[in-house]
């Protein structure tokens, strides 16, 4: 599904190489986790895949089902099925959450040449999904993320994911700022979306999120490259010994 080959990325504004030949393949139906120390390039990877400005790809490729992602605008990537759950979801005063969700769903449908969702159909779907994530009617009415707690923002990200039904979900430190209960709720939301046709890339610092979202494969990202790949046990190793041990081992 998602295939990244020899990806080199630098910051546009400064001469700083962040990703230095990253290779990664996420198959449909699988959950891959990326762990790594601060500054290893985890968030850069998520932004480059979703098309944020400010990064320059100097070498390599990233494709989704064979389609070159790097050539596309963010909205085109979204319509193809890429979804990034933001580490820091953005507040948008003046735009109602419902309006936002409906515009997003229908923009993607339009881009794919599908029929737009009717207001009734949309309302029914959003209510059902919101209920599962314990998102109340008030949160749906309020402007996007404005005045939301950390947990509410993350739940709102998962709600968007559930509504947009993407093929490839990238979760950027979705566990940050969450208490144990909120993390469980978010993880349940993600697990409900696990599907044979859908791939997940879960970026995290800590192993604890992976207790709830069980990964099939765990990668360690350090200094812009994947330095080690293994099963869920790799996450436990990080938890117990920190990154230092692993990094020393591969150096």
């Amino acid at each position: 599904m998602l295939e990244i080959k020899n990806l080199h990325v630098k910051l546009e504004d400064e001469d700083k190489q962040i990703l230095k030949g990253l290779d990664l393949k996420v198959e449909a139906g699988k959950v891959h986790a990326i762990m790594g120390p601060n500054g290893s390039g985890k968030s850069t990877l998520s932004y480059v895949l979703s098309g944020r400005d400010g990064y320059e790809v100097t070498e390599g490729s990233a494709t989704l089902d064979g389609e070159d992602l790097l050539e596309l605008d963010p909205e085109e990537r979204a319509a193809l099925g890429v979804f990034l759950a933001f580490q820091y979801p953005v507040e948008i005063p003046g735009v109602g959450n419902m309006t936002f969700l409906r515009t997003a769903v229908n923009s993607q449908r339009k881009a794919r040449g599908e029929e737009e969702m009717s207001a009734a159909e949309f309302l029914k779907m959003v209510r059902a999904k919101a209920k599962e994530l314990k998102i109340d009617a008030d949160m749906l009415k309020r402007p996007v993320n404005v005045g939301f707690s950390g947990g509410e923002k993350k739940r709102n990200e998962i709600l968007q994911m559930a509504m947009l039904e993407p093929k490839m979900c990238i979760l950027d430190e979705t566990d940050s700022g969450l208490d144990v209960d909120a993390m469980k709720l978010v993880a349940d939301g993600v697990n409900a979306l696990r599907d044979e046709g859908r791939g997940f890339l879960v970026i995290t610092h800590y192993q604890r999120l992976l207790d709830h979202i069980k990964p099939d494969v765990v990668h360690i990202l350090a200094n812009g490259r994947i330095v080690k790949t293994g099963g869920p046990e790799l996450a436990l190793e990080v938890e117990n010994n920190g990154y230092a041990g692993i990094l020393a081992e591969v150096a």
């Binding site: 963010p74 909205e75 979204a78 979804f83 933001f86 953005v90 515009t103 997003a104 769903v105 923009s107």
Partner: peptide, 13 residues
Amino acid sequence: EALFYLRSRGVPT
């Protein structure tokens, strides 16, 4: 930031 957020959800510029 808000513009990118919207675009990343599929809303054209």
